[in-house]
Amino acid sequence: MSEPDQRLFFLLQRAAHQLRTVADRRCAAAAGITTAQLGALFAVRERPGLTQRELAATLGLREPGVTALVGRLVAAGLVSKAPHPREHRAFVLELTEDGAAALGAARPEIERFNAEMRELLGEDGFLRTAAALDRLARWQP
């Protein structure tokens, strides 16, 4: 048996691509949304009235990318966008009923995905991996 590949960054990239591809296909079939849109919908649901800048920070994305993402969500009727009451150039975001419905439609796929990851990694491995990925996502060398 050969040794596992030690190129951690490469393995993380490959794993992220594989997981995103599977999750995007399932979310699209179940709720008509991508995982990027799903993440944005969760963030807006958790913090109603957040700005696009705050959404970008929450998702770890650049503002131009979030502007396009929000545009697609607004066009799909999943999020509403209104002028910020105090910042004349900012907009606040709210989840619409259709956005809440999309989150509800995606929930079974999220649960299925997590169950498959628990089976693949074992419960302890799942929890340890989730904790490690959270630390990596917050890492600032």
Score class of each variant (00 low, 15 high):
92 V>S: 11
100 A>N: 11
46 E>K: 08
22 V>M: 03
86 R>E: 14
50 L>T: 05
17 H>F: 12
77 G>Y: 02
119 E>L: 11
125 G>I: 06
101 A>L: 14
43 A>L: 06
123 E>P: 01
135 R>D: 13
74 V>G: 03
116 E>C: 08
30 A>G: 03
97 E>D: 15
57 A>G: 07
137 A>L: 11
118 R>H: 05
54 E>F: 00
43 A>R: 08
11 L>Y: 00
67 T>K: 14
10 F>A: 14
75 A>Q: 13
105 A>H: 12
106 A>E: 01
8 L>G: 00
121 L>G: 02
129 T>V: 05
119 E>T: 13
117 M>N: 03
31 A>P: 02
77 G>N: 05
118 R>T: 11
34 T>L: 08
44 V>M: 03
90 A>S: 13
80 S>T: 15
30 A>L: 07
100 A>G: 15
48 P>N: 01
99 G>V: 04
107 R>T: 10
67 T>R: 15
23 A>C: 07
95 L>N: 05
20 R>D: 10
32 G>M: 04
77 G>T: 05
119 E>Y: 00
15 A>Q: 12
89 R>K: 15
82 A>W: 03
120 L>I: 02
8 L>Y: 10
99 G>F: 09
53 R>M: 07
68 A>C: 02
105 A>M: 12
53 R>I: 08
69 L>P: 11
85 P>N: 01
